[in-house]
Design a protein around this nucleic acid. Sequence first.
DNA 1: ATGTATGCAAACCATTTGCAATGAC
DNA 2: GTCATTGCAAATGGTTTGCATACAT
Lengths: 159, 159
Amino acid sequence: MDKEEKTREVVRQKFTEYLIANKLRKTPERYAILDLIYTERGHFSMDTLYGTMSRQPFRVSRATLYNTMQLLLACNLVIRHQFGKNISFYERAYNNESHHHLICIGCDKVTEYKDSELKSFIRSRKMKRFVPVGYNLYFYGLCSGCARRKGGKKPDSRL
Amino acid sequence: MDKEEKTREVVRQKFTEYLIANKLRKTPERYAILDLIYTERGHFSMDTLYGTMSRQPFRVSRATLYNTMQLLLACNLVIRHQFGKNISFYERAYNNESHHHLICIGCDKVTEYKDSELKSFIRSRKMKRFVPVGYNLYFYGLCSGCARRKGGKKPDSRL
DNA sequence: ATGTATGCAAACCATTTGCAATGAC
DNA sequence: GTCATTGCAAATGGTTTGCATACAT
């Protein structure tokens, strides 16, 4: 069994525990969605996920997709991002080394940026009257491609 | 002339320069919106801004509000945030010391968190093939109130 | 048998767009 | 006088909801 399959098994188990603990049903739809998410790499939107899902032998509705995503967010198997447009993006949370995001304001491309020194610095901050459970750091700027052809179409300001 | 009025005058000037440079018209609507934004403190949504605007003697339509906001974003007089719901929030950018954000996942309250040491640490990071122009850092967690009555309504996961 | 979860379509809501009328230049 | 900008209302697009049916328990 390869690493990815092992991961899928672990998250299925975690999901099951969550469903039982909350007296929710273990439907095939829910597991199909979880499985598919854990074959995706990087970020994906609901739309692309629905597209991929539709091409699977096991189809689920958009409603169920959104429903299930709430559960997966609640049990921390998926995390959500908004990169500046009004669209949510998601990515798997388990076995996905935490990272920061570089968002190109020229072409909207999002890349991961791993920086463990930065991560531990951020996590070490103490704040008054607030108990942090997580954080998101988004860098906005120009990817190498867009930086080169700077002055082309003007990037839309997003911050 | 107090500090706030002085600020409004400076940003009007900056806005004017931007409009001229881009051959755009200096309409009273645009200045009314800019003025109002620079009397707001903290973050505001389009909806609340439209509400406040509607109570002003000078009324503008939602369309114009959105239109103008694009211009103000483009000339860096306003910055935009998305705190995890599909709503954009805005805040003035000029004379507004940069800060990070603490978002309570219990009650959605957003507070500012100033940490200049953290800021300079983040700004000092070098990344390959990416030219950063800015960043946003959002901490998710529980405000003191929600931390106290933990276990009340379950906070919706947002990351 | 019970009642939760699903799929569908309609509803929602923030934002965008088309277009005729207004007004900045 | 021109043409960008406004206001309105309709359209859009991601997400949510209502409800009858299906199915996990």
